[in-house]
Write a protein that binds this DNA or RNA. Structure first.
Lengths: 113, 113
DNA sequence: TTTGTTGTTCGCAAAATTACGAATAAATTT
DNA sequence: AAATTTATTCGTAATTTTGCGAACAACAAA
């Protein structure tokens, strides 16, 4: 549901959430792992790696494209996909910073620490 | 929708996707940022930070708990929340490895590189 | 021109997500 | 005992997500 106020969360938070959301499904993690393990490949190659129908794979690819994590270019009659380097690095940095910002361990409340 | 086959994706992929999914909403990123900036705090403190109703905050906290990223313990009549260090580190490492596994830049297909 | 290959889009259904106010539960305070 | 504080749960609604098969579009090959 869309918020009435527009900038309810700050830009960095929204961006990190968008990257995380795009990665929030095992099929999409699989696609990203596969694509990041090679230079590029065709839709059909990705399809073979996954236990789901091609229509569904296509949907997941669209979501990853919308999040900026991958690119696709038509090479008739095929479509070549690859990681979008620029945004991949951006996402990497966003996650890195996010996790790095935690308080030092010795002053955390958690009784198990 | 649940898959018919059980182990359709490997464990690491499922785990990373679960962490990512939990982080896939700006309210939950905000909660995690807030909690990781201090040792611990009460539900009410978190609520004040967010532009949504307390019932919704409670739901988001439950999701973060289910993903293992936070903990909550009752201190009547309040509830104290904090980051789950163990799983936080696990998630950090999972994301770090995920992004690190990409092929070197010079052999990627992307024409913009 | 017909046929085949490749991948997206359409139409649909089931389930999950996000959100809220009201009701509830649990404990303390008055 | 009644009232207050704190946070969760319930009930409900709107939207999004996930998934599939069938239909479609675009191009190549026969």
């Amino acid at each position: 549901m869309a918020y009435l106020k527009n900038h309810a969360y700050d830009i960095d938070t929204e961006e990190l959430a968008r990257f995380a959301k795009a990665m929030g499904h095992p099929a999409r993690i699989s696609i990203l792992r596969f694509l990041s393990s090679l230079d590029s490949c065709f839709f059909g190659d990705i399809c073979q790696e996954l236990p789901i129908a091609k229509a569904t794979v296509s949907q997941h690819l669209t979501e990853l494209k919308n999040a900026g994590l991958i690119r696709g270019e038509i090479e008739p009659p095929k479509v070549r996909y690859c990681i979008d380097r620029e945004n991949w690095d951006k996402a990497n940095e966003a996650f890195r910073q996010f996790f790095a910002n935690i308080q030092p361990k010795d002053i955390c409340c958690d009784p198990q620490n």
